[in-house]
Simulated scan of single mutants.
Amino acid sequence: MTARRVLVLGGTAEARELADALAAEPGVVVTTSLAGRTRDPRLPAGAVRTGGFGGVDGLAAACAHVDLLVDATHPFAARMTSHAAAASARTGTPLVVLRRPGWVEGPGDDWRRVPTTGAAAAAVVGSRRVFLAIGRQGVGAFLDVDAWFLVRAIEPPDVLPARSELVLARGPFALDDERALLRRHRIDVVVAKDSGGATEAKLVAARELGVPVVLVDRPPVPDGVRVVDGVVGALGVVREQCGTPSG
């Protein structure tokens, strides 16, 4: 039996979990592609390549050598998802997008949803102390906002607001720590992206402390692309497309 080749566009916990499962799947050879923006990333099982593809053309060329493309990038990696959809359409390589569910506002939450980081910057005008929990990208949108910022990211942003403190840390974070962080820095608004997953402790802490949240909505997946919301679903697609057993 000829091995079936799966290319996973990774960088998330779900991508690592999927690659680990596929590495143990009979008849499947998995390669995970990482963008290379994070130093010392957590590596999945199987082969790993690092760096961009050079746009749609490069990704399409890579698709010529695989049987299935799985986009398991961050929910806000809109350009990569757009390139994956275009490369899949051009080459006929099946594509599935693995996206964990977004967060849902519950009783006691005080959320304001906005479409972009620019809109989030406009929404916090008038705030005094802002917890910016959007990662390193998008921080530049807040440079002209007259407030103090606590900026948390895995890697240092290219720019920082004039009045700010940078915390370099990798989540997920414990609820007790998030609660203490908001209290210690006297945060009066939290800005986050609707990434979903296990990083919701900051939102729970904000709810408990009565701190409002500005939540940036995730970009939509291109029309016509198949989407699953978990590793089990993605594994099922691999088995369906590659003809591997489901036991």
Rank of each mutant, 00 (worst) to 15 (best):
246 S>P: 12
190 V>H: 13
111 W>R: 04
157 P>T: 01
106 G>L: 00
59 L>R: 08
202 K>C: 10
73 T>Y: 11
110 D>H: 14
67 D>T: 08
64 A>V: 09
243 G>Y: 01
202 K>G: 08
94 P>R: 11
66 V>N: 08
89 A>C: 13
158 D>I: 07
90 R>Y: 07
73 T>M: 07
123 A>G: 01
238 V>G: 00
165 E>V: 06
220 P>F: 14
1 M>N: 07
135 G>I: 02
222 P>M: 14
66 V>Q: 07
133 A>E: 05
120 A>P: 03
76 F>G: 03
214 V>T: 09
170 R>I: 05
204 V>A: 14
218 R>T: 10
162 A>D: 03
74 H>K: 11
150 L>N: 12
55 G>V: 06
44 P>W: 01
56 V>S: 08
82 S>V: 06
36 G>P: 08
68 L>Q: 09
218 R>P: 13
10 G>P: 02
94 P>Q: 12
228 V>Q: 01
202 K>Q: 07
125 V>H: 09
196 G>Q: 07
24 A>W: 03
2 T>Y: 10
7 L>T: 06
244 T>G: 07
94 P>W: 04
120 A>R: 09
217 D>W: 13
141 A>H: 15
237 V>H: 07
53 F>L: 14
84 A>C: 08
5 R>F: 00
177 D>P: 06
18 L>P: 05
119 A>M: 02
19 A>M: 03
61 A>P: 03
100 R>D: 01
163 R>Y: 06
190 V>A: 05
140 G>N: 03
53 F>S: 14
43 L>V: 11
57 D>F: 14
164 S>Q: 07
245 P>G: 02
189 V>H: 10
41 P>K: 11
47 A>R: 13
175 L>V: 05
162 A>Y: 00
79 R>I: 14
52 G>K: 14
211 V>W: 01
228 V>L: 08
2 T>E: 10
216 V>K: 11
13 A>G: 14
27 G>F: 00
6 V>T: 00
195 S>Q: 13
159 V>K: 07
80 M>G: 10
142 F>T: 00
86 A>T: 03
157 P>D: 13
207 R>K: 06
161 P>W: 02
188 D>E: 06
83 H>Q: 15
62 A>T: 13
79 R>W: 14
62 A>D: 06
162 A>L: 05
56 V>M: 11
53 F>H: 15
63 C>F: 13
7 L>W: 07
149 F>E: 04
239 R>I: 02
241 Q>E: 15
169 A>L: 10
155 E>P: 09
113 R>K: 01
208 E>R: 13
55 G>W: 11
64 A>R: 15
202 K>M: 14
146 D>F: 01
187 I>G: 01
179 R>F: 08
63 C>W: 10
170 R>T: 12
163 R>K: 13
98 L>T: 10
85 A>N: 04
56 V>R: 14
151 V>R: 02
191 V>S: 01
